[in-house]
């Protein structure tokens, strides 16, 4: 069941996205990744609207969320997810360059499940993304889907 659930990666920077996908490729989970380029796309995906109107219903196994994104930023997406009864169970992992205390505090206050600072060194970034993908996409048992998503 879990294998079917996609991993939602919100990343506006194509290079970061490519590096993350390269990291997950090594663990053969990259094919489960759905890439969103900004916060609005993430919300479109979660609410099955816009370009995701015809996608298969169901919540993703996990959302990897960058903080700084165009249109709707990570914290706003996080707030929307955690205030929607249907979306609240989805694990959200903040994946960001910011180590600022207020970002950390605000993310956890809004209900983030984890907060990971992207390491500058690629091998550390690689192992971080690998571990995150494996843990949240494979090891972790996602919440049961007892409610159908709205819209």
């Amino acid at each position: 069941m879990t294998a079917a659930k996609p991993i939602l990666l919100a990343e506006d920077n194509p290079r970061d996205a490519e590096l993350a996908l390269a990291a997950m490729e090594a663990e053969h989970i990259s094919e489960k990744v759905v890439l969103c380029h900004d916060g609005a796309e993430v919300l479109d995906y979660l609410y099955c609207r816009g370009q995701f109107k015809s996608r298969l219903k169901g919540n993703p196994a996990v959302v990897f969320l960058d903080l700084k994104m165009p249109k709707v930023n990570g914290l706003e997406v996080l707030r929307t997810i955690k205030t929607d009864a249907n979306l609240r169970p989805i694990p959200v992992v903040m994946l960001t360059s910011s180590r600022e205390e207020r970002d950390l505090a605000e993310s956890y206050a809004l209900g983030a499940n984890a907060y990971v600072v992207k390491p500058v060194e690629f091998h550390k970034f690689l192992s971080a993304v690998k571990e995150l993908g494996t843990f949240w996409g494979v090891i972790n048992e996602p919440p049961p889907e007892n409610c159908r998503s709205t819209h």
Binding site: N13, R15, D16, L19, A22, L67, K68, T96, S97, S98, R99, E100, K118, P119, V120, E121, F122, H123, F125, L126
Partner: peptide
Amino acid sequence: SYSVSHDLRAPLRHIDGYAAL
């Protein structure tokens, strides 16, 4: 310093990442 911490790190990560790739 917020934007330094956020924006300046990304290209560095890319340099290291693409060098590795």
